[in-house]
Computed example of a mutant assay.
Amino acid sequence: MSTTFDNISIGGRLKQLRQEKSLSQSSFSSLLGVSLQAYQNYERGDRPITKDLIVVLMTEFGVEPSWLLSGEQALESHSSLPELNEELLQQIIEGIESLLSKKRKVLPIDKKAKIIVMLYKTASIQQNLDPETIRQLIEIAA
């Protein structure tokens, strides 16, 4: 669960990305596959960012999730990982959200971002996603 401050911070980073790409809100929202009103709500921080939008930003714009969610690291990913595996990223995000929900725990967005990146890098190297690793990281972070 994100806070209003988190949403506003993420919205500011979305605006920064959009302006760096010299795009209007309307053009950027179309590229992201969301309505203009939805995008404006994201940018203002009135709406929490979704996992689907994070995936689109990663795949279409090379945005590093930890930068988007916490402001840490570089805006664009320059890692030596192979091409983004959207299915794996989706599994990681859903696994984290599911476990947090079941355990009724909340993680600050910056910790969640670090766990996503850590799990993605590990699973990419090992070629599998271990649910036990997700559980252990959530236990440590929460």
Rank of each mutant, 00 (worst) to 15 (best):
K105P: 04
A38T: 15
D52Q: 11
L137I: 08
K51R: 15
I54E: 01
P108R: 07
R18P: 02
L32F: 05
H78W: 08
M58L: 06
E76C: 09
A38C: 08
V55T: 10
L69S: 01
Q127R: 13
V117K: 07
F61G: 03
A141R: 06
Q136I: 11
L53S: 07
G71R: 00
P65M: 02
S24R: 02
R44S: 12
I93V: 09
P65I: 04
E60H: 13
T59N: 14
S24K: 03
L137N: 09
Q90Y: 13
L32K: 02
M118Q: 13
E20P: 04
Q16M: 14
Q126T: 12
L119F: 05
S98P: 04
N41H: 13
P82Q: 08
V34M: 02
Q19M: 10
N7G: 07
Q16C: 11
Y39K: 04
G33C: 05
I49M: 02
S26L: 13
K111W: 03
K15S: 07
K114R: 15
L14D: 02
T3C: 04
E139C: 10
A141Q: 08
I134W: 04
T4L: 15
A123N: 05
R47E: 10
I49L: 07
I140C: 05
Q25D: 05
I96P: 00
Q37D: 10
L107H: 01
S70L: 01
Q16G: 05
M1K: 09
L100D: 04
I10H: 00
V34I: 09
V106A: 13
Q16S: 14
E72H: 10
Q127T: 06
M118R: 11
G71V: 02
A142M: 06
N7V: 00
I140E: 08
K21I: 05
F5L: 15
N41Q: 12
P131T: 01
L23K: 09
Q16T: 14
L81Q: 11
S27Q: 15
S9Q: 08
R13C: 03
G71E: 00
